[in-house]
Amino acid sequence: MAAKRATRSTRKSNASKEELLQYYKDMLLIRRFEEKAGQLYGMGLIGGFCHLYIGQEAVVVGLEACTEEDDKRITTYRDHGHMLACGMDPKGVMAELTGREGGLSKGKGGSMHMFSKEAHFYGGHGIVGANVPLGAGLAFSDKYKGNDRVTFTYFGDGAANQGQVYETYNMAQLWELPVIFVIENNKYAMGTSVQRATKSPSLWERGAAYGIKGEEVDGMDVLAVKEAGQRAVEHCRAAKGPYILEVMTYRYRGHSMSDPAKYRTRDEVQKMREERDAIEQVRARLLEADPKVEDELKAIDKEIKEVVNAAADFSKESPEPALSELWTDITIEA
């Protein structure tokens, strides 16, 4: 296989070594977790739809770096990375993928439908676009209570064409809701490229029709994501209403596990991986500043591998839910 070209970022930054190591670790956890999920899918341990986040790690890691206690997040079916980034247990996530009792939803939600009230992670939603008003509703609850918490509402470039997104923009601005709309523009909605879905030159600018501020962000550079995230958070916490971030990113894998990805060339994917990869960028930055950091990176690689393997083991060992679970959690009996 072709030797990998070192990925370089030309951006100036005063991020500390500790900060960069943390991003490296958080992004690597997602990457390795997803690779393992792909493998378990291949073994038939994970069923149905399974949408991997590989390639997009910098988006959620950069934005999670801007969050504070009790901030909320909600996303789509491409949700494993979001859960890991907000600190949810990799074992619980993986065991949900395998449909086991130890899964975050006791095996009843699956890859696309997971939640953690504790981590303020409100799903995991399978209906494209639906999580957008839901996220604004979470922000509505914070505004109602009079606190300054912020809700991160993630959705795709494809979802950005759903009508309810614009209904939500309108109300979010009208009521000045503290919600950050994060459009993860990975260039494709299944097999439809952005250009084949809209003539709009950009997605974030559509917010201007409602008076919402926003910006485009380089989603392959975790530092750029974090900086933009801070601007957005500051805007929301200051009760100035919603903010839109259109984060330009790329998914390396197919839409879901069963996507042969014939709508793009292998070269396009390869080029992105080799020249723009978010993890490699941080790695290169660290090594450039101090070649001796290599040992620390190796230690992180090893640690992550162990965490992911432990999650995989747990997800295989945890039993399937008891048959009686079929009938629980349908309604709450007062």
Partner: peptide, 26 residues
Amino acid sequence: ARRVVDTPITEHGFAGIGVGASWGGL
């Protein structure tokens, strides 16, 4: 007006906002 909220004509959107608000403790 904090507790009696007029919405625009946007059922899909405000139903979703309502459900999200219910998850947020309202």
